[in-house]
Nucleic acid binder design. Structure first.
Lengths: 356, 356
DNA sequence: TAGCCTCTAGACAACGTTGTCAAATTCGAC
DNA sequence: GTCGAATTTGACAACGTTGTCTAGAGGCTA
């Protein structure tokens, strides 16, 4: 037995396919009494096959239940017709639509989507990205967890088209599609200031993450533009798990200089903040980054800076396929605008909240 | 040029890798002055290589930026270490956690996940499933859109392990992991009846979909167990897009025999129903199938029959890998229980709602 | 030093497909 | 009936990897 992939090399007939395995073009060819290449031609609808021959081949294909092995095809053709998507967590409602949008564009180009969740762990991001490269995906869409992507350089220069989404690539020059985190954050905080707030808290993601820094920058810019001082205790960057956000929120609302309004740095933080505020007496104002379903039905409705996740995905995927079709431009960074949606929670005046 | 996959066959040195393409083991071997097989041994950490040889090979690998081509490996080994997941829509918050759960199990088994959205279109489901089979995924997790899966028979008997989730397979005998749609729906409606409702509406998914039928059955069972008559106008199955659900809800609430409570057949229907009810004077009771984020923060909180999407995915993936590891049991159907979570919206008594 | 055994390394075929090229066949026109 | 062109078909190599088998180098014992 020189045959590694076969469990049993026994045969169930004369020239029929090997037992327990799928028939190949060779099997089809034998059954139809034609050559391998003719089968290939029929399977790929290539010209130059008599209707009669084609019929015989088709019959053999049906009879044997043949299906072309795309692994072999990929190896031969050098293109996998698949793109990889690495994101943080598919279960996060922000990434679902993004992933779906990438998938749709891929589908329009006849490609399948392989995705993986990094769980916000840089090591796992790298592991996933490299596994996808080993599979020779034609292109990669990456929502990075880490901040150093030099490990991707050999892959990119070997021809793996890559587009970063939502966060910039770290230490390499690469296509990216971003939301205007800075501007959006600035607008959010300006909105709170316009409604009379002077002590505003910011709870954001881990400082390793690009958007967290940008949003903090926007927060500072808005405060400074209004001539307001900023207290270190009003800014908290870290993991977005509920327990930490809860603690940070409580601390800001009850410190020596309690904030009267909160700016939440992403959808998960916002939801936790809503819970905390709902459980507290008094009402603090709140604006969140990212829109979320039902934000309008809460009371008060939650004011948010919305970014279009699907549009991010679509834009990135389109850039990717443009590159795959041979575009040789310099790496580009596209920044999509955000939109402030006022629903009430940002318009609660400070007087309602603070005793004195 | 007998070389299809290469754009240019020019070389950039003597034995260096081909221009514009990735180096192969052959290139590494040439550079390290060893044979192909030795490189393979190093790459796969096989024993029988001197430390010195190994070092030379590693150096060549690093210098050339070699990464093993998994397409070739897959072809040779006969296993792709990937599983396919076909679902309805990755952007739906119900499927995100499910997909993530499948991914985690796959990851534990060293496999990647390829997913595709059927958009609830049976033709597209079939197309996707067969594309995945052509890629020779080791296994398939399918949330079916169609109701006839005989097209999968040759694939399954050729060895593609397959598990259906959330909905039963149509016209074939296959592993499946389901939620107790019947029981959950019965509980939901019984809850409404217990709070005094006698005219209850049901808005569900398209009747082609297994869960829609089961939930309708549960609705009827609860009504009939309470000795309540059922009016055809109180039941509406169809697409879950907001416009239809809105129309159906309005019709039930304002017909000649208006309902005083609604049972919504899935998360999307529930959310639309919440919107409709919020915009109307008077309060109708509501229970939804599927839990959703923030259901507890609405006023009133939305009572739901919760199913654990992640658990569905995890269970299915585990069944899949058990099969892949050689389990030869009969096809099994696992039914996971649902849980009624009372939050208030189901406890609104009919008197509050109807004028007379 | 012969004989045997172990360990390292390489030659070669195979996985299932597609591109190239050449052979065989058909057809029409002279 | 012959020639040339067009059409259909097939033989073969190649994609990049891994499994098998064998050759050689080196160590040990007698």
């Amino acid at each position: 037995m020189t045959d590694p992939a076969r469990g049993t090399t026994q045969r169930n007939g004369t020239t029929s396919p090997r037992y327990g395995n799928r028939p190949t073009m060779k099997d089809v060819a034998a059954r139809a009494g034609v050559s391998l290449k003719t089968v290939s031609r029929v399977v790929n609808s290539e010209p130059g096959v008599t209707p009669d021959t084609e019929r015989r081949v088709q019959e053999a294909i049906t009879a044997l239940g043949f299906r072309r092995n795309d692994s072999a095809r990929i190896l031969r053709k050098g293109r996998t017709a698949s793109v990889g998507l690495v994101l943080e967590d598919l279960a996060d409602p922000f990434y679902g639509p993004l992933s779906r949008a990438v998938e749709e564009v891929a589908r329009d180009h006849g490609a399948l989507l392989i995705n993986g969740s990094s769980a916000e762990d840089p090591a796992r991001e790298k592991e996933l990205v490299l596994a996808l490269c080993a599979r020779r995906v034609d292109g990669l869409v990456v929502i990075p967890a880490g901040d150093d992507h030099r490990y991707l350089e050999p892959e990119i220069s070997a021809g793996v088209a890559t587009v970063f989404v939502d966060r910039r690539a770290g230490r390499i020059d690469c296509d990216a599609v971003l939301s205007d985190s800075f501007g959006g954050a600035r607008d959010a905080v300006a909105h709170l200031i316009a409604h009379g707030h002077r002590r505003i808290g910011f709870i954001g993601d881990q400082p390793r993450i690009h958007t967290a820094i940008e949003r903090l920058r926007g927060y500072r810019a808005a405060m400074s533009a209004a001539g307001l001082p900023v207290n270190e205790a009003w800014m908290s960057l870290g993991a977005t798990e509920p327990s930490r956000v809860l603690a940070a929120t409580e601390a800001m609302l009850s410190g020596p200089e309690p904030v009267t309004a909160l700016f939440a740095g992403n959808n998960r933080v916002t939801v936790t903040a809503v819970r905390v505020l709902a459980a507290r007496p008094g009402r603090a104002a709140l604006v969140g980054f990212d829109d979320f379903e039902l934000a309008d039905l809460l009371s008060p409705g939650v004011t948010v800076v919305a970014q279009d996740a699907a549009q991010l995905g679509r834009t990135a995927a389109n850039m990717l396929f443009r590159r795959l079709e041979g575009a040789e431009e310099e790496p580009r960074q596209v920044v999509l605008p955000t939109r402030l949606i006022a629903r009430g929670s940002g318009e609660i005046p400070p007087a309602h909240n603070v005793a004195s």
